[in-house]
Design a protein around this nucleic acid. Structure first.
Length: 434
DNA sequence: AGCCTTTGACCAGCG
DNA sequence: TCGCTGGTCAAAGGC
């Protein structure tokens, strides 16, 4: 396996975790006020799964952001927009979104619940985790993406998410340090646009997508081929059925009705789904539970009976959702899977909120500055192995720095039982408990 | 030739 | 009505 860049980073806004944070707008302050009030709600996640109103206003992402310190993808279902704040020098967020690290359940076959594209041997696994394929390899000499024509242009290519974009404008937006670039999907009749903000160093600080693609991703030999090169395109896919599924991860073998369900959700909501609470609005809890499992592609072990699984995934829900354990030590559902499919995205949230998850399937964020150090990311559990990378934290920006070499750990099938392909943010035992 | 970025101008919404 | 702001247009030029 080639080495990982040590500059891979996921950075979000730190919500009032230090007094040295940058000045914030009134809207941000108002939001924080709202968030502080909401901390009183211990079951906020469950609430958000059941209450569309708060969810659709982006409350969930903001709450998660408030608790996790990350600015997570937010969804505005009314405007059909979502935004992502992410900084990844040399790694396009879009690539990250599609990488196995963030794709989690996307690897599950919606039909069988199995990892449809799972390599069967070590070599294959290593290849699968080739960081060049998932966009984690980073050349320090290229702090940002450039167009593939050798970087002769001064411009930086938009975050490559597999689609072709044409820049049609750039503007320095008030309140933003950096200019905002406007891109349109070059596909005829596709109205998808995105706004990208980059820092002076070329780091993408924000991406906002609008609307959804009404076409599959173009072939790889398109003009702009950075980032997605080989990411997910080597798997079988029913291309005719992914119409409307924005950025469908080609790792998924869409062969079940779940595909249609997912497609419907994406078309009606947002390009990158995150959670699916609204879908369950009019359903009773059991149905909701069932749909959750469907939507997230989780079908449990192959030898489990459907009623048993239903009863189990229900007990989960009824058992409460321990989302906050201490004042400053919080286990949060982090949107680790920010892939372009709602099926995947919805599952990620559920994975993180469930108390059924194995003990390592948590993500801790500490309120103090130094406590972030030592935070680790355990990645995609694949087959019998788990991919993990110790990370160091940047207290100011919540930047997680990954070491050169990720670590593959053996993971028992039992551990993998609940969510075998989920990316796991794990708090290490070395982290201080407050 | 085609596709892209750049960039100033224009437009629409809002207070 | 006016100014501000974000978003878009379109001509020019590069690759």
């Amino acid at each position: 396996m080639t080495g990982f860049s040590n500059t891979f980073a996921v950075m979000g806004e730190c919500v009032d975790c230090s007094t040295n944070h940058k000045k914030r707008s009134k809207a941000e302050l108002d939001r924080e006020t709202f968030l502080e009030e909401d901390v009183e709600n211990k079951d906020f996640l469950q609430t958000n799964f059941q209450e569309r109103s708060s969810y659709s206003r982006g409350g969930l992402s903001e709450r998660v952001a408030a608790r996790a310190g990350f600015k997570v993808p937010s969804i505005n279902t009314e405007s059909n927009l979502w935004s992502l704040n992410i900084s990844s020098p040399g790694v396009s967020p879009a690539t990250l979104l599609e990488s196995p690290v963030f794709l989690s359940n996307a690897l599950l076959s919606p039909t069988t619940g199995k990892l449809s594209s799972l390599p069967s041997d070590h070599k294959a696994k290593d290849e699968f985790f080739d960081p060049t394929l998932i966009g984690l390899e980073h050349d320090d000499s290229q702090p940002y993406e450039r167009t593939h024509d050798g970087g002769s242009r001064d411009s930086m290519a938009p975050a490559d998410d597999g689609y072709n974009w044409r820049k049609y404008g750039q503007k320095l937006v008030k309140g933003s340090e950096y200019p905002r670039s406007y891109y349109k999907c070059t596909q005829p009749n596709c109205e998808v646009k995105k706004k990208v903000e980059r820092s002076r160093e070329g780091h993408i600080t924000e991406i906002i997508y609008a609307k959804t693609h009404n076409h599959p991703k173009p072939p790889l030999n398109r003009r702009s081929g950075i980032g997605s090169s080989g990411t997910c395109n080597d798997m079988q896919i029913d291309g005719t059925e992914q119409q409307g599924l924005a950025g469908t991860n080609e790792n998924i073998e869409w062969t079940s009705p779940v595909r249609n369900y997912g497609s419907m959700q994406v078309q009606n909501r947002t390009q990158f789904g995150y959670g699916d609470a609204a879908f369950f609005k009019d359903e009773d809890e059991e149905d909701r539970t069932s749909h959750m499992s469907d939507s997230m592609g989780y079908y449990g072990e192959a030898d489990e009976s459907e009623p048993k699984r239903r009863l189990e995934i229900k007990r989960t829900i009824q058992g409460g959702l321990p989302t906050q354990t201490h004042n400053n030590h919080v286990h949060y559902p982090v949107p680790h899977s920010i892939s372009e499919g709602l099926v995947t995205a919805s599952s990620s949230l559920f994975d993180f909120q469930t108390p059924m998850r194995p003990p390592w399937a948590g993500f801790s964020v500490y309120g103090g500055e130094t406590e972030l150090l030592g935070l680790s990311i355990s990645g995609l559990a694949i087959g019998q192995e788990r991919f993990s990378m110790p990370a160091t934290g940047d207290p100011a920006g919540l930047m997680l720095q990954l070491p050169a070499e990720p670590k593959l750990e053996q993971v028992s099938q039992q551990e993998l039982g609940f969510s075998r392909s989920s990316l796991i943010y794990r708090d290490t035992s070395s982290l201080p408990q407050i």
